[in-house]
Design a protein around this nucleic acid. Structure first.
Lengths: 121, 121
DNA sequence: TGTAAATATACCTTGACACGTATATGCCTT
DNA sequence: AAGGCATATACGTGTCAAGGTATATTTACA
């Protein structure tokens, strides 16, 4: 289980993460709110901790888990490369440019670079 | 294969998506640039298309694939719930790292980029 | 000290999915 | 019409991860 993307691919893990946004929670609290078996919760938390999504502190027999920000930022920075694309792609100008792209490359199989206008953000 | 998160969990699919950021590409071009077997490329493209990440247009025997923005925005909006959290923690994290700077913890993988949350488009 | 609570882990089973190989389909060229 | 290129798909296989059940470990408390 290497990448952050595989970690958040699991629905129960995403549920746990969403739960932890509000505040730190114990395993039992997660178990009850999400109605998951306790071993399931513990195992997912183990995965999340190994991946750096959460950290735990000890409170008697309980363990309190809370979020850590770094892996989320990693996902966010992966998204960066697509932000420019989708912000431009929304408006009609882009559709026009795409049609031009299509017509210019019907004959030329040169992988044209399509110098597009940078989004103004 | 329901969620967008499972789609982007696969490294080869992420590679294809990154490749398509620059411009639309045919299956053969993807195949050559990523050095993947052609059926692998086609099958991943099938998954990506079913999930709405790409769409294809016909150019003779070729199929040209290009990105679609919606699923990326879905990931982005899922991240939203965590942005507030990590923006609050950035300052504390920076101070923390500053203080821990020369102690070089066992767990200290100091690759933080401390990116701040982006405003939603 | 013994028992119950909270959590972690080991073991097994099952299912999904990624891959490789082979083949099918479609279009283009001669 | 035939053969070749580009792409899609079918099929068999192996791997890996998630779930369930049982058990281990630690701590509180009577």
């Amino acid at each position: 289980m290497q990448s952050v993307f595989e970690i958040i691919a699991e629905p129960n893990r995403r549920a746990i993460l969403s739960l932890l946004v509000s505040s730190k929670q114990s395993v039992g609290e997660i178990e009850r709110q999400l109605r998951m078996p306790q071993p399931t919760v513990s195992k997912h938390l183990r995965v999340l901790r190994d991946a750096g999504f959460v950290e735990s502190t000890v409170d008697a027999q309980r363990r309190l888990y809370r979020l850590k920000p770094e892996p989320f930022q990693e996902v966010d920075s992966w998204l960066d490369q697509f932000r420019r694309f989708w912000s431009v792609h929304i408006d009609a100008l882009e559709r026009h440019l795409d049609r031009m792209d299509q017509s210019t490359q019907t004959k030329g199989k040169t992988k044209e670079k399509t110098t597009r206008p940078k989004p103004r953000t």
